[in-house]
Design a protein around this nucleic acid. Structure first.
Lengths: 135, 135
DNA sequence: CTTCTTGCAAATAATTTGCACTCCA
DNA sequence: TGGAGTGCAAATTATTTGCAAGAAG
């Protein structure tokens, strides 16, 4: 894999951001510094990185694909369906389940997506207030 | 919600299929019986159903949104990243984790998405063969 | 040099929307 | 009958691809 400046710039964004980022977002953030960077270059490199297992690729519920460095510590989120506030879940109870599955099905497990949805205390309270108003 | 024949037909597909189905797939399956059903009607109704919590909406790793009846017994899938073959996972190890989270964060947990990805034995074998060819 | 990469523009794929017409309640 | 629902075509959005020109080793 050749070492090009656009490749480096894309990787730097990935390194700097704590949360997964999408191609369009990376493109927007690099627009200033690299005015004639092509969006397709971003997509191609992200796909490349994912292929080489340098980054982890994930499709979110909004349909956008986001990437994050694979070195980063594996984690999931608890997302509030009211205000979209996110809490990281460090505990991941799936390693064991995956082993069992690999054994039972013969699949080579590559990974998983897990996101938990709920209402944070404020949103839950607000929602109940609104329901009372309606009646 | 009015009871139209296309709405019924879409719901019937949902009821008949054990696995989550996408809009294009439902459209394809109904084209024979309803030759001038519009794809947009399928999309609109699925969104509607999801809004009324009649069906569960989920974005898969291939970027396609698939829907399944919410009444159905809760379950997750092991999806092959090669051929998209799906195996249902009846075991769900999250109830306990969710209780702990509710206690720790004060959130009212509403649900979660969990999908495991891997390669089925055939796809894994095929992929290895192709890699060897390249060298 | 020569192969890997990029930029640009055009092509897809999945989904959404505007609008006139249709059909259930 | 009146508004919810539909079909059709055109618009969006996210992503992919073909190809000639450019840069890295």
């Amino acid at each position: 894999m050749k070492n090009t400046k656009q490749r480096g710039a894309i990787m730097k964004i990935l390194e700097e951001s704590a949360e997964p980022v999408g191609a369009e977002e990376i493109f927007a953030r690099l627009r200033g510094e690299w005015p004639n960077l092509a969006l397709s270059t971003v997509y191609r490199n992200l796909e490349r990185f994912a292929g080489e297992a340098l980054v982890h690729k994930d499709v979110f519920n909004d349909g956008v694909v986001r990437y994050s460095l694979s070195g980063e510590h594996h984690g999931h989120y608890l997302v509030c369906t009211g205000c979209s506030n996110k809490i990281r879940i460090d505990d991941c109870p799936l390693a064991c389940l995956e082993q069992g599955l690999a054994h039972d099905t013969g699949y080579e497990i590559e990974g998983h997506t897990l996101t938990i949805y709920g209402k944070c205390p404020e949103c839950a309270r607000r929602e109940k207030k609104e329901q009372r108003k309606k009646k």
